[in-house]
Design a protein around this nucleic acid. Structure first.
Length: 373
DNA sequence: AACTGAGCCAACCGCCGAGAC
DNA sequence: AGTCTCGGCGGTTGGCTCAGT
């Protein structure tokens, strides 16, 4: 029946590690390598839980870890990736060589969150507080208050808006240790005519620490890294086009463009301006919605949640494949994200729509059920 | 010098999915 | 099939340091 417990939790040392204990871990790893952590305490002569040993190793003792403070580039990168994917610390840390998820998380909680707040940016949604309040104002000002039930009766809306993760977007700038910088605050969609196949290719700005396709460097926009969705096939990122160059190196932070071409000068880059830009919904969002309608799937969830789930899938693929190529494949449907920001542009709107929908569907059940005030 | 509160960060907690038994 | 641990993750806490009073 199950495995035996890894250790006697009540009889293991806890708290800060001593230099002697660290040395034992290091000696163990150098002798046996990384492996079954439950055996580590016994083999290394430590009175610690195996899980605690693993944490000590991954967060502190691993030889490739950086212990110096974060650079401005790393800081910028964390903010942008957090804006894009939320508090996925391990994913963010994987893009920062030498940093652990704990490092990134601590740095965010102690420095960056406050920094954004001081700048008037909600560190969770990455939206200006003014916009959040404006959203709240719009909610309060709606004529058909009844249809929104209790949701607009109290400050919970604001709380919700401010505590939800940012809608992921392809906003990424400031790559550390890098020769690439993508400075765009939102995806750009442009139609590119493929001269060889007459296929329309839609390209987006896209985060670059992954493998992706770029336009021929002759045609690439300065400060822009471009990702392709090939409309003519079900697979994204077709490389058949003569206009498309596939980057073969999966190395993070690498691009064949020189820093001088891409990096803004430190003095020209305006953080406030960048952060205050409202990110558009994730590229392909509208396609997702359309795709679901095609499949007969109604919006059973709010667009935000829908989107988050979809992005989870995308992120899983990033993790599994180290590539964005397939992570955002929407079945080859045409990318027409230009109107995606209209009706579903905010999380609050989405909640309202969903609430309204539910109330229409279940008027008797919902009426008053959630009126806490 | 003593106290206090904020900042920082290492370590722990608790949850979850995968897999062992 | 059900129970349990492992490993990984994000959230939280406890204790140390330091600046301000």
């Amino acid at each position: 029946m199950g495995r035996p417990p890894c250790c006697d939790k009540s009889n293991v040392k806890r708290g800060l590690w001593t230099a002697e204990e660290d040395a034992k871990i290091l000696a163990y790893v150098s002798k046996y390598g990384i492996g079954n952590w439950t055996l580590v305490p016994k083999k290394a002569g430590l009175n610690r839980c195996g899980k605690s040993c693993r944490l000590r190793w991954t967060n502190y003792l691993k030889p490739d870890l950086k212990h110096d403070s974060f650079t401005p580039q790393e800081e910028e990168f964390i903010i942008n990736l957090h804006k894009a994917i939320g508090s996925r610390w391990s994913l963010i840390a994987k893009q920062l060589p030498g940093r652990t998820d704990n490092d990134v998380k601590n740095y965010w909680n102690t420095k960056l969150r406050k920094k954004l707040s001081k700048m008037g940016i909600d560190p969770v949604t990455h939206k200006p507080f003014s916009q959040i309040l404006s959203d709240y104002g719009n909610i309060s000002g709606l004529q058909n208050t009844r249809s929104y039930g209790s949701l607009n009766k109290n400050i919970n809306y604001t709380t919700t808006a401010m505590s939800k993760p940012a809608e992921p977007s392809s906003v990424l700038t400031g790559y550390p240790n890098t020769d690439i910088m993508m400075i765009r605050d939102r995806p750009i969609v442009e139609q590119v005519q493929d001269s060889s196949s007459n296929e329309n290719i839609t390209s987006w700005d896209f985060p670059s620490p992954y493998q992706f396709h770029v336009i021929n460097q002759e045609t690439i926009q300065p400060q822009t890294t471009t990702f392709f969705i090939n409309e003519a096939t079900s697979s994204s990122c077709s490389s058949s086009s003569s206009n498309v160059t596939k980057l073969s190196s999966p190395q993070p932070y690498s691009c064949q463009q020189s820093q001088s071409q891409i990096l803004p000068s430190p003095s020209s880059f305006n953080w406030n301006e960048f952060l205050l830009t409202d990110p558009l919904p994730f590229p392909g969002f509208q396609q997702l919605q359309e795709h679901r309608h095609i499949q007969g799937t109604t919006l059973a969830q709010t667009p935000h949640i829908d989107f988050a789930a979809e992005n989870d899938c995308a992120l899983n693929q990033i993790v599994q494949e180290g590539s964005l190529e397939s992570a955002f494949d929407f079945g080859g449907q045409t990318n027409q994200r230009s109107e995606a920001s209209s009706s579903m542009s905010s999380f609050v709107d989405a909640i309202l729509d969903k609430d309204s929908e539910m109330r229409a569907e279940f008027p008797d059940i919902l009426d008053g059920s959630f009126d806490f005030y």
